[in-house]
Amino acid sequence: MWNNVRQLNLATSALHVLFVVALVLAGGLWLVQRPSFTLREIRIDGDTEHINAPTVRASVVGKLKGNFFTVDLDAARQAFEQMPWVRHASVRRVWPNALAVTLEAYKPLGTWGSDQLVSVDGELFTANQGELDQDLPSFDGPDGTAQEVVARYHDFQKWFAPIGATPEDVTLSPRYAWTVKLSNGMQVELGRERNSDTLADRTRRLTAAWQAVTQRWGKDIEYADLRYPNGFAIRAAGMRFISEPVKGKK
């Protein structure tokens, strides 16, 4: 080899290339470690109504490792998505020392159980209910039924509209029986669904006979049991017992 000029030239060129690469790597390592690239700013936009600086400091800042070049954006995204109210976060770098974060918040539809909220999409999340600016309906049900309960809530809104009432509480029991508390104070037992029309048919019997019911018993109806096959039973204010099933229109 030492007598081969061509091979010596190739070896020399290779060493030069390796030397240059080493210099570039060393320079790059030195550059990315400069204090000027330390993360100094987090710019947040999007749904920020329930997001404030103390929450970000407590939930996110301590989990951000590295600088502008080395921070793990996926880990940063996950840290932001662990904050209350945050459904989704997107994170990107902003030269030379900042992160830009866009947040998408859950849109609450109602409360769920004793300590959670449910979104308009039927997703459960945990947040400070004291931050709500309005009273929301209450929902509850077995694990994994949030979307089903939310869908039925919208059905109940339509089905009870003829009597001028809206659902305030919707509960699906462990036995999958439905109970609804309405804005007029009436609790309605709908029972279990036998088929896709069960709840609609039972509700329709009550709303179709509502005028006759209120004329006979008054408008202060406290309880209605719609689980009968061809009618329903009610309890008006001051009554000790539930009445005999009242025949309604099918």
Rank of each mutant, 00 (worst) to 15 (best):
T203R: 00
L226Y: 04
Q33R: 15
A236P: 00
E244I: 06
L18A: 14
P174R: 04
D155P: 11
V56K: 05
T198R: 03
V21S: 13
Q33P: 04
E41P: 06
R152C: 01
K219F: 10
P229A: 12
D143P: 04
A79V: 08
D74A: 15
N3T: 11
V61Y: 00
T171H: 14
E168F: 11
F68V: 10
R216S: 01
N67T: 03
R227P: 06
I163M: 14
V101Q: 04
P229Y: 08
P96I: 10
E81Q: 12
A14V: 12
T145G: 05
E49Y: 12
V213W: 00
G28R: 08
F37L: 14
V94D: 12
T214G: 03
L172I: 09
L226C: 03
A14G: 15
V170D: 09
L25T: 15
K65I: 07
L25Q: 14
V32R: 05
V170T: 12
R93W: 06
N67K: 01
R43T: 13
T126K: 05
M83L: 07
R92L: 08
H16P: 02
L124K: 01
A58P: 00
W178K: 04
N97R: 11
A177K: 14
L226D: 02
A11G: 08
G28N: 11
L64I: 07
D121L: 10
A22T: 13
R43A: 14
R204V: 07
G164A: 11
A236E: 00
T111Q: 01
L99D: 08
I242E: 07
H154D: 12
R152W: 05
G231E: 04
A177D: 08
L124W: 05
S183L: 06
L206K: 02
G113L: 00
